[in-house]
């Protein structure tokens, strides 16, 4: 059965301050698939996630990205988000003075409006947010605190998963969600991700270590080095990398 790809990246070249970071990436993600992007530090894997989400620190030099058939680069970051692109940040920003609840509500309102869904009233939204908090083992007070303000590493990452659960994206980009997490926090985060897996939703999981992939089992693994995909395979590729290290591939 042939599917329409959700995401088609072709020969993508991107640079920052004149330095090439992505040097011809091609990648096709179909609905429901989980792709892991692995690679050593500086290989460009985080850049890929950020370029797709629309961060303007990076300049796209050439290549194309189609998301649901449309040119992704014609969309502002907020339009991408409303269309269903979600980036779980490696380093979520702290925003004191804006409560997590305020932020989440504004975000969900914007996305729902775009999708033609009815705006949730405050009580229904609170209820929904609290339910998701519970699943992610976050206390309800968590919603009243400033966005990521004084959150532990694990709380920040779980807050990203919470946002993902509320926004129901079609493509989730997880940028080193495992970094800075102990094994318990990692499991909780991974369970949160797995609960969102469905035949329509796709994931690109960016990670340095194969550890995360024990919990979020990918369909495909790509190894990035020097801004290029140097090897692709199934899950077993991650295990092989774990055993032999990145030097094996380079």
């Amino acid at each position: 059965m042939s599917k329409t790809p959700l995401l088609e990246v072709k020969d993508l070249v991107a640079e920052v301050d004149g330095k090439t970071i992505l040097n011809g990436i091609s990648l096709t993600v179909n609905p429901g698939e989980v792709h892991a992007i692995m690679g050593p530090n500086g290989s460009g894997k985080s850049t890929l996630a950020n370029v797709l989400a629309g961060r303007d620190d990076y300049e796209v030099v050439s290549g194309s990205v189609r998301f649901k058939g449309q040119d992704l680069f014609e969309l502002e970051p907020e339009e991408r988000a409303r269309e269903g692109v979600f980036l779980a940040f490696q380093y979520p920003v702290e925003i004191p003075g804006v409560s997590n609840m305020q932020f989440l509500k504004a975000s969900v309102d914007a996305v729902r409006k775009h999708r033609g869904q009815e705006e949730l009233d405050a009580p229904s939204f609170m209820k929904l947010a609290r339910e998701h908090c519970k699943e992610l083992k976050l206390k309800p007070e968590f919603l009243k605190r400033g966005v990521n303000e004084g959150f532990s590493g694990g709380e920040k990452k779980r807050n990203e998963i919470l946002q993902m659960a509320l926004l129901e994206p079609s493509l989730a980009l997880l940028d080193e969600t495992d970094s800075g997490l102990d094994i318990d926090a990692l499991q909780v985060a991974a369970e949160g991700v797995n609960a969102l897996r469905n035949p329509e939703r796709s994931f690109i999981v960016v990670t340095h270590y194969q550890r995360l992939l024990n919990y979020i089992v990918p369909d495909y693994v790509h190894v990035l080095a020097g801004g290029k995909i140097v090897k692709s395979g199934g899950r077993e590729l991650a295990l092989e990398l774990e055993e032999k290290g990145y030097s094996w591939i380079q």
Binding site: E76, I95, F103
Partner: peptide, 11 residues
């Protein structure tokens, strides 16, 4: 911070 908001659909 602005990008963080935008990446969540907020204009």
């Amino acid at each position: 911070s602005l990008f963080y908001f935008q990446s969540r659909g907020i204009d």
